[in-house]
Design a protein around this nucleic acid. Structure first.
Length: 202
DNA sequence: CGGTTTTGACCTGCGC
DNA sequence: GCGCAGGTCAAAACCG
């Protein structure tokens, strides 16, 4: 563990939501919107407000010096680690392939988990999802739901489950990166971004 | 009627 | 090898 993986900011004039950061070890695309996101690694910050507009438009410079801490700092170790945790119901992401060190591990798509305090299970993140499964999870009263992005060329999945310890918290785990823009966001922010880009030319 | 959700069955990986 | 648990499939039901 030790060093944290920071989201890689997009090049100039390219909004975050149009920028696909380089793959693994970790990367994120769109976090859930319209709710109160919770930084997973710091329980003391539960329910903190996050400036999503700044994040999505790239106006927030993400550094690690404490002035502007990363807004999303998911714990991916528990998500992508090889061992299955049989004690917890929130161990998302079963690794593919055998755990043998002698065998090459199958590439695991980037996974990011968000903790969000919300009464709704399915958070509106701007993309369209189709549910393809639901499973009861051991040691958890709440089932885990599996969703796939409905975009034909997109293979992004997400899992949704409530924390057994705190049922007000929804854990959303994204797997993969969207290869298409978010329709909803484009619809809403498109004109605004054009205007911003026009103004920043001067 | 097309898209989405539900849900039981099936598949696969891991630990013992 | 076996059992358990997570993940996916696919047919039926549901809905706008």
């Amino acid at each position: 563990m030790g060093e944290e993986q920071l989201p890689i900011p997009p090049p100039n004039n390219i909004p975050n939501y149009l920028f696909t950061p380089p793959l693994p070890p970790t990367s994120f695309h769109l976090p859930p919107l319209l709710h109160q996101p919770i930084i997973q690694q710091n329980p003391n910050q539960l329910g903190m407000d996050i400036d999503w507009v700044s994040l999505l438009t790239g106006s927030t410079s993400i550094t690690n010096n404490g002035d502007q801490m990363p807004l999303i700092m998911p714990t991916v170790s528990s998500v992508t680690s090889g061992a299955r945790n049989t004690n917890e119901g929130e161990n998302f992401g079963k690794p593919k392939g055998k755990g043998s060190a002698s065998r090459a591990k199958k590439a695991v798509p980037p996974r990011v988990a968000f903790h969000t305090r919300s009464t709704e299970d399915v958070l509106d993140d701007g993309y369209r999802w189709r549910k393809y499964g639901q499973k009861a999870v051991k040691n958890s009263n709440h089932p885990r739901s599996y969703y796939r992005c409905t975009h034909h060329t997109c293979n992004v999945k997400k899992q949704i489950q409530r924390l057994s310890k705190d049922t007000s918290i929804v854990v959303t785990t994204y797997e993969g990166i969207h290869n298409h823009p978010c329709e909803k966001l484009m619809e809403t922010l498109g004109p605004l971004l054009k205007q911003i880009q026009f103004l920043t030319r001067f």
